[in-house]
Structures are given as C-alpha cells and as structure tokens.
C-alpha cells in the first residue's frame, strides 16, 4: 500500500483506553484524612453542632488518655490485656495449627474435623460465656480460653486449606527422593502453607483483639476491655473513646507487625 495515500482521508488517532485498576496507597493522604476527621470532630463540638453528651471531643479524649497514662492505669490495663491476648492467641494458634495440619494430612481427622468446625465456628463465643464461667471459673483461664477459642477456628481453617493447596508436585518430588513423612510435613507442607497461615493470623489477631473485650466481660477488674466496658456502663464517654482508641492503635500495631513478618517470611513469593 502506498504510504499515507489510502489512509490520509480517514486518519483517526487510536485513543488510549488502558490504565486504571492499579490503586496505590499514600501514607500522607491517610494521615491528612485522619487529621481532617479529628479537626472536623473537634470543630463540630466547638460550634455546638454536636452535644458533648453524645460525643466527647478529641481534646477530652486526649486528656483522658494522658491522665490514664500518667496515673499508670493505662499500663496496668494494657499489660494484663496483652498478657491475655498473647496467651490466648498462642494457645489458639498452636491448637489451630495442630488440628488444621491433622485435617489436611489424615482422612480420619478430616472426616471428623470438617463437620465439627462447620458446626462450631459460627457460634458466637459470647453466647458461651455463662458456660465458660461454669467450666473454667472467672479467673484467667476462662478469659484466655475465650480468646483461644476465637483464634483456634480461623487458624485451623487457614492451616488446613493452606496445606491442602500446597502443590501435589512438591509432595511427589519429596517422596521421590525418599524423604520421610515427618520431614515432608515440616519442610514442604507447612512452609508451603505459610502464606495462608499468615493471612489466617491476620484474621485471628484481629479476632483476639475483638474478643479481649468479650473475655473481660467475665469478672475482670482490670484490662483494656474491662476498662472500656466499665466506662460504657458508667457513661464516661471520654474514657470509653480513649479505651477504644487504645484498642485500635493496638490493632494497627499488630497489623504492622504481621506485614513485617509477611515481608520477611514470604519474600520468596
């Protein structure tokens, strides 16, 4: 075709129609958004649009937090709650890893475990509180158990599906070199399931934080959950929001720690 002759009269540029679907996050925008919300909140109270009966101002919350920190109360509540969360989460995670692995590896465990987990997972743990009190008392055991129970199920499910999804070829490869069963589990199945286990941990850590409030409904005199509950009961809204803020900061920290763990452990992906 002679260049530019037939094309010339109807020449149309091809419009760009790709792009998009690549959202990026900006820390600065997040921080500014957060600041704007706080300012609007304070402003609405200062302007009298919101009654202080309904919502404490950010300044009041900050003051409540400062008092809590200065009196050492914050640390007292936080340390006991962290103790419960860490202990409950560790037990729940250990049990979940064990049961989830067994379900992924053994027919008997799978046949027993699947229907049981389906039946027990959706039960709200709070509904079991009176029973847990009867069985385990109102000491640390029942609180740790409440958290552990909440952590157990998602961990078991994540471990099970993680191992189940490990490439069969890798298992066959290990078998073809005569690697013993236990070593295949430790060196192939579990590392292969790690991405799924870690994303399960992201969920279970949030659940542990949620459940610390439930757990501390049972006869807890201290703990950040007990503190939030009692502030709610006493209608001390500044304390209530301060306690909730501490919980959400805790959530952010746990999320950041897990992201760091994922970065370190899953760099091979």
């Amino acid at each position: 075709m002679p260049e530019g002759q037939a094309l010339q009269p109807e020449r149309r540029p091809v419009a760009f129609r790709g792009g998009g679907f690549l959202p990026r996050t900006s820390r600065a925008v997040g921080a500014i958004g957060f600041a704007v919300v706080l300012l609007a909140w304070q402003g609405a109270l200062a302007a009298g649009w919101i009654s202080p009966v309904f919502l404490p101002s950010p300044v009041e919350v900050a003051l409540a937090l400062r008092d809590l920190a200065a009196s050492g109360e914050l640390w007292r509540h936080l340390s006991i709650s962290l103790y419960r969360i860490v202990l409950g989460w560790s037990f729940g995670t250990a049990a979940g890893l064990g049961v989830g692995s067994a379900m992924a590896l053994f027919s008997l465990a799978r046949s027993l475990g699947m229907p049981m987990i389906s039946a027990l997972f959706p039960i709200p743990k709070i509904a079991l509180l009176p029973l847990l009190i009867l069985w385990l008392g109102i000491g640390e055991t029942s609180k740790v158990a409440t958290i552990g129970l909440g952590v157990f199920f998602p961990t078991a499910i994540a471990t099970y599906s993680g191992i189940d999804n490990v490439s069969r070829t890798l298992i066959r490869m290990a078998q073809s070199f005569g690697i013993p069963f236990g070593a295949i589990v430790c060196k192939v199945a579990l590392p292969g399931a790690l991405p799924s286990i870690l994303s399960g941990m992201r969920i279970s850590a949030s659940i542990a934080l949620l459940l610390v409030v439930s757990a501390e409904m049972i006869g807890a005199e201290s703990g950040i959950g007990a503190f939030v509950l009692s502030a709610g009961n006493l209608m001390q809204t500044d304390q209530l929001v301060a306690g909730v803020a501490v919980l959400s900061v805790l959530g952010l920290l746990v999320g950041a720690a897990l992201s760091a763990a994922e970065k370190a452990l899953l760099s091979w992906r």
């Binding site: 008392g137 109102i138 807890a220 007990a226 509950l229």
Partner: peptide, 15 residues
C-alpha cells in the same frame, strides 16, 4: 467482680 448480667452472676455463684 463485674459479671455484666444477672445470669452470669448466678453462674458464678453456682460454680
């Protein structure tokens, strides 16, 4: 010791 509800208190006494 706060137990949040009367049934919880009853449970704690029973046990």
């Amino acid at each position: 010791v706060p137990m949040q509800s009367v049934p919880n208190v009853v449970s704690a006494v029973k046990g």
